[in-house]
Structures are given as C-alpha cells and as structure tokens.
Design a protein around this nucleic acid. Structure first.
Lengths: 253, 253
DNA sequence: CAGTTTCGTTAACGCCGTTAACCGTAAACG
DNA sequence: CGTTTACGGTTAACGGCGTTAACGAAACTG
C-alpha cells in the first residue's frame, strides 16, 4: 500500500484531522434531522463558514465528500454483519448484506438519499469519478463474483451482449471491483448490473416512501424481489437456508 | 361529475386561473433548469413572494402542487401516445406507456425527481393523500387491469398473500384505480406493486444517473427489465410484436 | 352604502452559499 | 537563524431563500 510516499508533515496530519471532523460533524447533523449546510457544519466546529472553503470548493463538494464517507461507513457496517458467515459462504454473506443495505436505507432515509438518490449531472465528470470508487459498489460486485466462483451460474457470453453493453462491461465506468475478472467472464457484470438495478429499485422505492407503508413494514416486496434472484444466481438449492437468513435479518429492524 | 355545486363566482375563477399560472410558471422555471422557489415563481408572475402564501401554505406545498400537475400532464402525454394502439390492445398500450415514462424521466430528470424521488415523510399524511391520487399510478393500474382482463395471467389468491399485503390490496393506500376490481381479484394488485417496483427501479436508476451512461443510452437495462415481465403478464405470445413496439418507442429519443 | 373578506403590498428576520480583503502564525528556505 | 511564503483562519458584505407581521386597497356581501 505504500504508494508513492506519504510525507506526513505536521500540517498534513492536522488537515486530515479537520477533514475527518467535517465528515463527522456533517454525519451528526444529518443524523439529528438537521439540514446539511456549510454554515451549520462550520458553526458546530467552532469555525466560520468561509473557512470551510479551504477544504471544499463548494457546497456540492461537501455533499459528495460526506456521501462518499457515509457510503464507506455503511458498507463497512454491512460487511461486518455479513462476516458472521464464513468466507466460503458468499451466498449467505450476500443475503445479509442486501438486507442490511435495505435496513440502513429505511432507518436513514436522508443518508440514503444523499448517497444513492442525489442526481448526477451528465457533464459532471468530477462526480462520476467519485461514483466510480463507491465502496458499496465494489463490495457488492465482489460478493457476486465470489458467489459465481462457487456456483458457476450462467451468464451471457460477450458476443451475446449488445455491443454497447459489451463495451461497458469490458471497460466499466461504474463502481465495480472488476480488474480481477478476466475479460471472457465480464458477462458477469451484466448480471451484476441487472441485479443491482433490481435491488436499488425496491430499496429506493421503500426508502423514499413511494409505497404503501404497510408493504414496507412487512418487507414482502423486498423479500420477493430478492427471491427472484436466487434462481439466476444458482442459489436455488440453498433457498430455504437463505430465506431463513433473510427473514432473520429482516426481523432485526 | 357535478359534485356538490360549483358556484363559479368571478373571484373563484380568478383564483383558479392564478393556481394555473403558478403551476405553469413553475413548470417553465423547471424546464429552464432554474430552481423552483417561491420568490422566482412570484417574481415571474409579477407578484411578491408573500402573496403566494394566499395560495400555498409553504414551499413544500408548492412543490407538491407542481409535482401533482406535472404527473398529470406527463401521464396525459404517455396516454395519448399509447392511443395509437386501439383500446382492445392494452398490452401494446402498456408497452408504449412504459417506454414513454422512461423517456420522460430521462429527458426531464428534474421533473422526474420532483414527482417520483422526492421523499415522503411518514407522518406527513397530507402528502400521502396527494400520492394516493397520483394520476400516473391510476393510469398504470388501469392498464394492467385491462391486460389481465384480456390475458387472464395468474395472480396470487388472497389467502396465499401475507396478511399485511392482503390488507394492503384490499384497502389500498397507494395510487391505484382499484375500486372496480372485485375483492377476490385483488391479488392482481400485488402483481401491480411488484411490476411497478421493477419499472420504478430501473427508471429511477437511469434518470438519476447512478448508472453507466452508455448503458442508459443503449436502453438495454430498461429493455431487459420490461422483457422479464412479459411472461408473468401473459404476453409471451406477443413477445416479438411488443418488442418491436418497444424498440420503436425507445428509438424516439 | 357599510362591513367584511380576499388578495396583494412593504418591511423585516434569520437562514443559506459565496466572494473579497485581511492577518497571524507555522512551515520552508537561503 | 532570520526571512519569506503559504496556509488556515477571520470579518464584512452581497444576493437569494422561506417565512411572518402589519397594513392597505379592491372586491364582494348584506
């Protein structure tokens, strides 16, 4: 990891600490139901708002910074929860992670909206880059890969894919830990995109509340959506076991 | 429709016109890429901001009002587009409407976010009510009903459903034109919820840009998602025909 | 015509993001 | 070591926001 050189001068350490405090304070603000604002963050740090411009170019960048860190923290949370199952049981881990993702989205809708529902303009290449290194994206891709490595479920060959999609899976722009996936297996990423789309869909629907609250409370819509993917991911044999894990995790909230 | 009595006094007509102008100006503002704000709307109407409080209790209510009308207008758009197929071909109409919905979401992401991605707080019963009468929701439910009426695809019986879901389909809170659906057929609404969740999911993913732009441009993710529903909706026989319609509509943007 | 309701105004408050000008001090340098 | 530079903060100010209060004119109502 010793990449380049880390001249940890006194100043740099100080600066790093300030960044951490910014994120911490912002997260705290969000958790309290307050709005995220430069002034509020600065105020709570005992600073004035213009000072924050030494760390962040504008408001949107503050949002992006906080979003990135929230995503990182949340992913770590799901990951450690998933670790109650051994490394050689990625199916169970994936199940846990998905449910934890949903539970997080439901308990922290504001944070979820910040990370996953805040619009990304086309031209805004800066933000696209941040998106590309999204921690949760890498985590889920990797889990899916592990499941495939074990179950060998079918995926489209490259020449079955639409040319544009083929390009997209060979040279992914989107968060995906895909470097270690050989190009002939990149069809897997199409499965990933489709599965992520489904997961993202229900969770967004539920988290934003565009849904009958009773349906959300029951968890049935989410459950059914996940269930649909057991087959394509070669998990049919584990159906009952995974369902039990799912319901157990669902019951936690 | 002559409900109660409509004493169309001069004042009431004036007031109605002002409401219309508010919505029109707001939509115009949004279309120009400007932010929606009370001051901007008022300004463009030649009024001062506090005057708007005679029409709207606060900013959120302006947003809700505009959202409702945008939804209404957009739905009318999809509906007329769908009418190029006859009434006795609801499958084709549904296909067109879905693609048009997506195209709308992609060309007007700001409007889409306003209507479909703006969070609805739990306690906020006022906004729930507005959601309940969502025009697009009614439209899609009705189309799905018509498809079922023709194809009789299978749906879960009431006693197969989770009790909470059973309650939710018998006494729907969510936008659904369901009064005319007999209670023994209400399992249909479960299909509706699941299908809507899938549609909402991809469209939101694409509209907010949390997705590889090339994948969006190709339309393949959306196409595949819709394709998955041909089977469950009893449309397998029409597969090729509907796919042709879909691709035709997709090519329009 | 008198009384009241409706619909608009102006003034003001407290937020917000953002910029400009300024300044002490810690680090870097000859 | 002393000088210079650059960093990390300040205050003041601008324009915009939602929102409230006090007020006035015009329109309806009896």
């Amino acid at each position: 990891m010793g990449h380049l050189r880390a001249p940890v001068t006194r100043r740099e350490k100080q600066r790093e600490a300030t960044y951490d405090e910014i994120v911490a304070v912002a997260a705290q603000l969000l958790a309290e139901g307050a709005d995220l604002s430069l002034r509020a963050v600065a105020g709570r740090m005992g600073m004035t708002a213009p000072a924050l411009y030494r760390y962040v170019a504008n408001y949107q960048q503050l949002v992006d910074l906080v979003a990135f860190e929230l995503d990182k923290a949340a992913t770590a949370e799901w990951a450690t929860a998933a670790e109650r199952f051994p490394e050689d049981d990625p199916a169970a881990r994936l199940t846990v992670a998905c449910v934890r993702f949903r539970n997080w989205a439901l308990t922290k809708p504001r944070e979820f909206a910040l990370v996953f529902a805040n619009p990304i303009a086309e031209a805004d290449s800066q933000r696209r880059e941040l998106l590309t290194v999204s921690t949760s994206g890498h985590y889920f891709t990797d889990l899916l890969w592990q499941v495939w490595d074990q179950r060998r479920f079918p995926y489209p060959a490259l020449d079955e894919l639409d040319p544009v999609i083929r390009e997209a899976v060979l040279e992914p722009l989107i968060p995906a830990k895909a470097e270690h996936i050989p190009s002939e297996d990149r069809g897997l990423l199409w499965i990933y995109m489709r599965a992520w789309s489904a997961l993202y869909g229900v969770v967004t629907l539920e988290s934003t509340g565009h849904c009958d609250p009773r349906v959300i409370a029951s968890g049935q819509l989410f459950r059914a959506t996940l269930l649909d993917w057991f087959g394509p991911l070669g998990l049919s044999e584990d159906r009952e076991r995974l369902l039990a894990i799912m319901d157990e995790e669902l019951a936690l909230r």
